[in-house]
Amino acid sequence: MKQILLVEDEEVLRMLAADLLADEGYKVDEAADGAEALKRLRERDYDLVLLDYMLPFYSGVEVLEHFRRECPEKRPKVIMLSAKTQPADRERALAAGADLFIEKPYRPFEFVKKVNEVLHETDGSPLSP
């Protein structure tokens, strides 16, 4: 069973995403901010991290960069969720190792489809453990 960490500060959106992913049969951990996210990332190896761009304290990119520095051996797939998609933000996120951007607000089924695709890619990926 794939392990997914969902980092989202908006309660309703977190609930929606978590329900959607659980329905798909993934095991979902939730985090409301960067500190919580990092704590969970240290504790467990996830197959996928869904990271909201706009987080309190640290932005999603900062969390990602920090995580990459701290645990370079962990290689989960990363999808950034963002309403703000400035090109500079995208570049920074991609440089930090994000695999995909999903723009908010998203359609639930398309969201699920994209998550599935990313996780499916992992199987054949040479980078996967």
């Binding site: 908006e10 309703v12 959106l13 929606l16 309403a83 908010k104 607000p105 998203y106 639930p108």
Partner: peptide, 9 residues
């Protein structure tokens, strides 16, 4: 957008 995204979803 944030509440709208929730409502829409």
């Amino acid at each position: 957008r944030t509440p709208l995204a929730g409502i829409l979803g």
